[in-house]
Simulated assay, not measured.
Amino acid sequence: MSVKEFSESAIGFTKSPLGIIALFIVLIYGFASLVVGFGQNLSNHIAPLIYFMVFFPVMVFLGFLWLVAKHHKKLYGPSDFKDEENFLKSQLSSAISLAAAVSKQSGGERELNQDQLEEVVDIISNTKQQPSSEKWKNCILWVDDHPENNFYERQTFENQGLHFKLALSTEEALNTLKYEKFAVIISDMGRKEGPQEGYALLNELIKSGNQTPFIIYASSSLPEHKKIAREKGALSSTNRPQELFQLVMRAIQNGL
């Protein structure tokens, strides 16, 4: 292989973390081979170098196993997707939907300011969701008696490869959970059944031993309400679409 061909291949490898690891291994072996081939007076020091060349692949293999087991989602770059253009479109669609949700939450009467737009772009660009092969890990149960109010939020998640099952009441949610598993449960607070029905559902889940991550998406983001939600067993509570997105994606990533 010519130097030009090698450099072109190397550029291709730098597009993903796996490629960079491969380049690093090639360079290490290249330098080791040069030392063995051109080094002088190595007879007294050849044994450590041979041990290194023998055991280095074993160390790399064990390190790779650890990465795959603990940090597999960090091993991929956008170019590893089947269609990089679709990946970029998905991220753009997610940003647009999240921006629409934020605008709606603030009354929809004015455009988002620069800080809000930058926050939305930053949140989406730092999200690297790889759908799981297990269907339930890509599915969210959303309990709300007015699901039309959450259209843009759901659209944001769907652009990340997630799916939804909707429930209009605590009873419907509990019946659904008898037969299906979900990665996350999102619930409003007040419904026709009562002003704190979100907590009523959470209590029933805790009694039954269901440990699905639970998030309250209601009308408040006050610190005291977040504290109460956590004390009752929820991950948190919020009325901000940006925070909801981060809470859900973090819960899903931790569960994979």
Score class of each variant (00 low, 15 high):
M1P: 01
K137S: 03
S219P: 00
N138S: 09
P17V: 06
L65E: 15
W66S: 14
A100C: 11
L75Y: 07
K104A: 11
M189A: 08
R110G: 08
G198W: 00
R230I: 05
Q246H: 02
E85H: 11
P48I: 00
S219N: 14
G30N: 03
V248L: 06
H146Y: 14
R250A: 12
T212M: 01
D144K: 07
A200M: 10
G190C: 05
K74W: 15
L202Y: 07
S237N: 03
N254V: 00
N175S: 10
L62C: 03
S94H: 07
R154A: 12
V143W: 00
R240S: 14
T127V: 06
R110H: 15
N41W: 04
N150L: 01
H72T: 10
V54Q: 11
Q116V: 02
F52Y: 13
R250G: 09
N44K: 15
H146K: 15
L247K: 03
A183P: 00
F13K: 11
Q40I: 04
M59C: 15
G107Q: 09
L141S: 07
Q246I: 00
V121F: 10
H45A: 13
E204V: 06
N239C: 13
L27E: 08
F214I: 06
L247Y: 06
R191N: 03
L112G: 02
N159M: 05
F61Y: 11
F87M: 09
I206K: 11
G12D: 11
F214C: 02
G30I: 01
G209D: 02
D188T: 15
L166E: 10
Q91C: 08
K73I: 09
Q155G: 08
T127Y: 07
L62T: 12
D144V: 08
K178F: 03
A218E: 04
A173C: 11
F31S: 04
K192G: 02
L65G: 09
M59F: 15
K181T: 07
S169D: 06
L162M: 09
N44I: 12
R191L: 03
I124E: 04
V120I: 08
H45N: 15
V35R: 13
S33K: 12
V36M: 13
P78H: 02
F164I: 06
V120H: 04
Y199S: 09
D122A: 02
N86V: 11
G209P: 08
E109L: 15
L88G: 01
E231R: 14
E84V: 13
K82A: 14
N239L: 05
L92H: 12
Q196L: 12
E134F: 05
L244N: 05
A200E: 10
L117C: 04
E109R: 14
L117M: 11
F24C: 04
R240M: 10
S79C: 03
